[in-house]
Computed example of a mutant assay.
Amino acid sequence: MRYQDIGVTGIYGPEMILVGVAIDAMEGPLVRFREVELIARVPSQARAEIGHLARREDATVRVNWSGDPEIAAWGVSMGTALEYGISSNGHNPERKDRMITSALFVSAELAESPYETGPVLHWCDVREREKNSGSWPVKTDQERSHWAWSPLKAVGPLRFGMTPRQVADALGGEVPAGWRGHFPYWWWGRGAAGQWTLTDDRFEQTGVTAHYWYPEGLPVLGAVTVHGRTGPQIAHAGIPLIGATPSRLDEAMSQHIKNHDLGPV
């Protein structure tokens, strides 16, 4: 149950017993454990202080699905979110250039593997999401490929309408590091009858994810996600779209819209 006014989500188990509390990075209350502030912190600073406190208390710190600290002995699993602030006009929210911490606090029964338990999965199912090891490789502009973008037609060598095989061949035969799909009906589950449907191929070396759709019953490329930290550079009207800080990109795009009398949609 989401309590919007205070940035808190209550997670309930059988018989509506509270078993977890999720604190929003931007709107939630500040939570302190011992001398460590956990919420709305720069992740690297929070990680360092959590690690120091855990060593002092002989608690084990592991990495959760998102690459953030998780301490079963304390029943806490950390997370992150992009920071927002008030824009210069004082009305609209504005994206900032840093991430800040959020947290999930759970009862002892859920602490060992919180994101694998029923109540937490019902609130936030991360089973299909890409797991992070806790380290985030980042390519410099010099290390990135530079792709041309033809709106609605192609992104670099990837033309919309390609088959999965053609996508892999266009990327030099790279084998996907991971893929995602589903059965025709979600309630069938794994191993049930029915044709498994491919929806995404993730290419870590190139730094892109290919998304497929089935206009005539067979998978063809319908969209491409370019990974911000490792993907190729793509520019529009001279504006670098990939690997830029949010504030710089927002400012450049807003100015482009004004200069060309375009309406944002």
Rank of each mutant, 00 (worst) to 15 (best):
H91W: 13
R62E: 10
V21D: 04
P151K: 03
P264R: 09
A148I: 02
S87E: 03
R47Q: 09
E15W: 08
V226D: 09
A235Y: 09
D97G: 05
V106W: 04
R165K: 14
T206D: 04
A252F: 04
A111H: 08
S145L: 15
W149C: 05
H211L: 15
P119M: 10
M78E: 01
V19Y: 05
L158R: 06
V126R: 11
P157T: 10
A22C: 07
T9K: 12
A237M: 07
G207I: 09
L121I: 15
H122I: 13
I242A: 06
H182N: 14
G67Y: 01
V42S: 08
R248G: 02
N64P: 03
F160S: 01
K131E: 14
M162G: 04
L152R: 14
E130N: 10
T245V: 13
W179D: 10
G243E: 07
I17V: 15
G85R: 05
S254L: 11
R98P: 01
G243V: 06
P114Q: 07
G7H: 02
M253Y: 00
R2F: 10
E109H: 11
D169S: 12
I234Y: 08
G222R: 05
H146A: 11
E109P: 05
E70I: 12
D58P: 02
R62I: 10
S135P: 00
L221A: 06
P246F: 05
V8Q: 02
L198N: 00
R229F: 10
A168E: 12
P43C: 01
I257V: 10
S145Y: 15
S87P: 08
Q255V: 09
V126S: 11
T245E: 15
S66Q: 15
N64E: 03
A252K: 05
H146L: 11
L53A: 06
R41N: 08
A108T: 12
T117W: 02
A223N: 15
T230F: 02
E204M: 11
G51I: 04
E112Y: 00
A148Q: 14
T117M: 08
L121N: 12
V265R: 12
S133T: 13
V31Q: 00
